[in-house]
Design a protein around this nucleic acid. Sequence first.
DNA 1: TAGATTGTTAATCGATTAACAATC
DNA 2: TAGATTGTTAATCGATTAACAATC
Lengths: 206, 206
Amino acid sequence: MLKSNINKKIINRFSRYRQALLRLKNLGYKRVVSITLGKEVEVNSSQIRKDFSMFKITGNRKSGYDVDYLIKELGNILGKNRMHKLVLAGIGNIGAALINHYNSKEEGVEIIAGFDIDPLKLQKKYSIPVYALIKMEEFIKSHSIKTGVISVPAVSAQDVCDKMVSAGINGILNFAPVNLKSADDVFIQYVNIQNKLENIFYFSLN
Amino acid sequence: MLKSNINKKIINRFSRYRQALLRLKNLGYKRVVSITLGKEVEVNSSQIRKDFSMFKITGNRKSGYDVDYLIKELGNILGKNRMHKLVLAGIGNIGAALINHYNSKEEGVEIIAGFDIDPLKLQKKYSIPVYALIKMEEFIKSHSIKTGVISVPAVSAQDVCDKMVSAGINGILNFAPVNLKSADDVFIQYVNIQNKLENIFYFSLN
DNA sequence: TAGATTGTTAATCGATTAACAATC
DNA sequence: TAGATTGTTAATCGATTAACAATC
């Protein structure tokens, strides 16, 4: 099946299934039925069976699914069997959080460099090298980086995005509260914390 | 209209409309038509007009919508006309990012305290007071806090959530990669960075 | 075997988009 | 006025859920 035909929501659920399965494995589960996994991730059990079925992930009609098998299959789909190199643009608290929590060989993530307008004051504080932002494009090209994280102020996010894309990046995680414009073959994910807070303020009625 | 009848997606779009309108205002826009705003946020213009119409937000049939009016109306809906007090559980890089970037009177957000298992080493580094996690429930009650941010490790997230809710919190922003279980009247938003990265790795084909 | 769960189809549900009359 | 855009209804689209035969 072509990736372009696969709904983003399915892959998003696969990622959440996998995280839940890792927890269930830790709790001692060897096998799991769709209704149990469904409760864990708040997804209807039909949805789960259908999602698995679309990727030829099979279970046993009496005893459900094997946990290790599911983790392995989902991991393969999500690219856990290989390393993904990232660069960061903008080294503030968000960048630091990425470096400290998500630079994980086990999860296939390798953050190899950061870039900032003001590199001097930042150079020594992190476990990855930090360079001046003007060096970013050259670095992306020479290291064949395909994924970038944008955590610069909103006003410069589009410019950084353009530079990343022209240097060869085709996947971006953007923390700036701006809708980025780019070519159709560039996949962009947004993390908009302000937006999340506003949703909470509205629905929690306070 | 009852808030429970209003789709989460509409409020989510309202938040994004407002962010886009603030940018457009900065660019000098006095009025905006639905198709222009739609391009800015990647939403169909019919959708925008329908969203506005549901909340009795009106435009002019010739010249579109007044930017300041939209910002004000959307701000009122999103609660920008009052302050929302937050507490943070877990003071790492994510907590620091919240304190530095989202503690904004203009946006109605006031982070009044943080809590961590290890408060001593953190006490002096931030612009808000940081206390031991065991003090959290008492603090939430005595200050009538209604919103909490969870950025503790996954294993303790549910426990922190339970404590927040029992102390009176009804809106939670959760950065831990766990589905939290709580009463139906507690509104929870998730930020799952691992999940976002996995989506990028899948769809950007690298 | 009997019972439980998968795998898959059909039905439902709800959100998005198109269309266009109203009107500024 | 003529043209452009809103406001709103109807049509479309797609995702979710229910149902159940297959089968372990």
